[in-house]
């Protein structure tokens, strides 16, 4: 009896340290923020806030620019997840081969991740610059485009530009985690498959992909969470413009809370953005559970 009780306690003890940190340092500010979203708080008159119920929410949900912003967020998130995951996987597969100087190439591939966000934006300002930027120079040199593009400043390329910038910064995270996962595939599996006459494509599809399934779901979830709330790139590179072409929810939230001084409304936007990310993540979650059920009868 005591033994089983103790046995039952073990998982809770294992989770306790993490749970303590989460409750004390993470949930408290989140609840505080949720509370603010039900008030008319202005940042500069914070002490004079009053509860106004759901007014912030109803107001925001009735605005067309909120829904436009939701659309922009979904585009930005989808673009970033697809590009960073694909590039990240591609690089991880390369880095999983044995070759000379592999440690160096691995380290070089992590460089974007070691670059501070502020500097990422500054570098890509130059990369995309229509007048002097290397991208236009190279594309013109290769004959792909005839005249310079105004990447960040045209409505039709602004979103693509910030997705590229974001993906450049994020893909090494995918590479790192997938690489760790690829390294754990027992080499015997490949050897056996080779003996059975499987070609590289078949080996990739039937051994590699299934083995990194969990790691992929982990990373796709993280990428979704990151990009749906990422603020720096869209704010610094395009200020949400041209027009509202890149005004994702995180930018909209910041503008309301800090530029326009309406902290209450900004917080309600943040909570709505929370719900949006949640909806995306729950989708993965359902997939995951189905996965687990299949594994454990």
């Amino acid at each position: 009896m005591t033994y089983t009780l103790r046995g039952r306690m073990i998982p809770y003890l294992l989770l306790a340290p993490a749970a303590v940190i989460m409750v004390l340092v993470i949930f408290y500010p989140m609840v505080y923020s949720a509370q603010i979203s039900f008030t008319d708080a202005q940042l500069l008159r914070f002490s004079q806030r009053e509860y106004i119920g759901l007014e912030n929410y109803t107001r925001m949900l009735n605005r067309s620019d909120f829904w436009t912003s939701v659309g922009r967020t979904l585009t930005y998130t989808a673009g970033t997840v697809v590009i960073s995951y694909t590039v990240g996987l591609f690089v991880a597969v390369i880095l999983n081969q044995n070759f000379r100087m592999r440690w160096l190439v691995r380290t070089l591939m992590m460089i974007p991740w070691a670059t501070p966000w502020l500097v990422v934006t500054l570098i890509w300002f130059v990369m995309f610059n229509p007048q002097i930027g290397p991208i236009n120079q190279v594309l013109k040199g290769l004959g792909i485009i005839e005249s310079g593009r105004t990447w960040l400043y045209s409505s039709d390329t602004a979103m693509l530009s910030i997705v590229i910038t974001t993906s450049w910064r994020l893909f090494p995270a995918v590479t790192l985690i997938l690489l760790a996962s690829l390294q754990s595939i027992p080499s015997e599996l490949y050897e056996a498959a080779e003996v059975d006459g499987a070609n590289p494509r078949q080996r990739f599809l039937h051994i590699t992909l299934p083995s990194i399934r969990t790691a992929s779901i982990t990373m796709i979830t993280l990428l979704t969470i990151w990009s749906s709330k990422l603020f720096t790139i869209a704010w610094t590179l395009t200020q949400g413009g041209p027009g509202d072409a890149t005004r994702v929810l995180s930018v909209y939230t910041y503008q309301e809370a800090f530029t326009n001084n309406r902290l209450g409304r900004g917080s309600s936007l943040a909570m709505l953005s929370f719900v949006l990310s949640l909806a995306l993540v729950v989708t993965y979650f359902v997939l995951l559970r189905r996965d687990e059920k299949r594994v454990e009868p």
Binding site: R8, I10, P11, Y12, L14, L15, A18, A19, M22, I26, F27, Y28, P29, M30, Y32, S33, I36, S37, L43, F46, T221, L222, I225, K229, F231, L249, S250, T253, Y254, A257, F258, L263, G266, S267, A270, M271, S273, F274, S277, L278, V281, F285, R289
Partner: peptide, 27 residues
């Protein structure tokens, strides 16, 4: 371990990361 509240905990771990940072500045 398979125990009661396991999925809830995993879910909470995810929840922790969902709120945009600009909403957390003031709190």
């Amino acid at each position: 371990f398979r125990f009661r509240g396991r999925m809830v905990f995993i879910f909470l771990v995810l929840l922790c990361q969902l709120l945009p940072a600009s909403a957390l500045i003031v709190p």
